[in-house]
Amino acid sequence: MDSFLLRAENIGLQINQRQVLDNINLSIKPGEILTLVGPNGSGKTSLVRVLLGLIKADYGKLQRKPGLVIGYVPQKMHIDMALPISVLRFLQMGIKANIDETSYMATTLGVVELLDQPLQSVSGGEFQRILLTRALLRKPDLLVLDEPAQGVDINGQQQLYQLISGIRDEFGCGVLMVSHDLHLVMEATDQVLCLNTHICCSGHPEAVSQHPEYLKLFGASLDGMAVYTHNHNHSHDLSGGVVDHQHHEGCNHDH
């Protein structure tokens, strides 16, 4: 049997008599980036919460590598203004704090100037990187990111995904992330699961992006498959400039 960090078999979940997850099978290996995509209400966040152990599945089997350390970056997080806490303190909560290690990691993720700031004063993008820093300081075997690009502008998103795949290369941890936008994460992911209560399709990102089930789910909401095939072609031609992608999308759409 091959090694895995986390394995789910036949997971099912109901919330208020509504089937939210059905027959989910997945496994994450060390050093692998697995991306969950799916429309709103498809159960992405619920699946992440089940995998993290925050809620219990109604049926199915969840296995974790013994002693698995998870670094979790939640989707959005509100810290009450009444709680005085600096970025540094937040980073070091609950771990044996080592200032050298903390500032090294904070430097790597570009948040080192923020360490003395109140946590509530940082911007959305900065907060995402702080959460990432905090997760990495725990030396996780598995990094779980729920919509990491939320509240980050489109240039920042590209950088963020590059950063995440860089982290995987440097630390060798597995990564599970949720994204609403496959074409943005395409280059940074090894495996894609397209979710809509059940797993519609899965596999290599480029294969998934052309899978009929995937197109059925996303095609309508994003003005047809042309956007996707087009974008897909361009992500091979262009290395940077996501804004350019969008411009081309527009052109393509007019054809």
Partner: peptide
């Protein structure tokens, strides 16, 4: 420390084993 972790963010604390 645990009380503080829960006050900051319950789910984050839970995912970290508090």
């Amino acid at each position: 420390q645990s009380i503080l972790a829960v006050a900051v963010h319950e789910e984050l604390a839970r995912s970290e084993g508090v």
